[in-house]
Amino acid sequence: MNELTRIPLAAVPDPSPVVRLRGFSRVFGDTRVLDDLDLEIAPGEFVALLGRSGSGKTTLLRTLAGLDPSVGQDLRLPGTRATVFQDARLLPWKRVWQNVVLGLGKRTRRDLAASALEEVGLGHRWDAWPLTLSGGEAQRASLARALIRKPELLLLDEPFAALDALTRIRMHALVLSLWQQHRPAVLLVTHDVEEAMALADRILVLDRGRIAAEERIGAPRGSRGSVIRSLRASLLGHLGLQTESGVYADLIGRKP
């Protein structure tokens, strides 16, 4: 195919992954949305999942979030999971702090929510109504709601796609620092190759319901400049865009 190394999933050297799917399939009518899919995520690992529209990303995420039935399939999920959705999905009739502690029982008090909101930089809006928040603020609240559950698996469903570029950069930094502090396993579903390369330890490309490619990034975050070009070229290749230089401007400006 090309120079990238394809690591067979069965060889992931972790003995007890937090997520394990073996031969997982999901069929709607005639379409196999997920087709004999294998996936393992190690504890504390940051995995990004790329894929075109219709590749099965959403279905995979819903499965991992426990929203779709998975009876009779080989599937292991951790007990504590939390999801951050692209559209925040705060309940508009509950104040921000009530959203953060949603479903945690009556014993969970306001100060706990307040400290979680403090951690995502939203302490001052703890008592606001969700509809008064900006997009970035809503996503911070949504992050606080996820992290207060101390999840073993944090699912991020294109959480930054609807934010403006500057807010997105700030949110990337926030997510990284939260991940480094709490160390949940993360599955970040995204369209954005740059985002995936900046944040993840491992990048998966989903295509027609299967993992079509996998890239591990050895270089630490903050010094990935040297590997990013070839990585981008190969990831874009798997997504169906051919580019030799791996530079965005060249990709768009290329003469046919």
């Binding site: 819903r62 929203l67 939390a82 999801t83 999905r89 309940l91 949603l102 479903g103």
Partner: peptide, 25 residues
């Protein structure tokens, strides 16, 4: 339905879902 999904993903049962999401909505 997206709010219902979100609430379910945080482990809300049927009663909690009705009380927190469906009735206020």
């Amino acid at each position: 339905i997206r709010l219902v999904d979100a609430a379910r993903s945080f482990g809300l049962g049927r009663a909690a879902l009705i009380g927190n999401v469906i009735l206020p909505g």
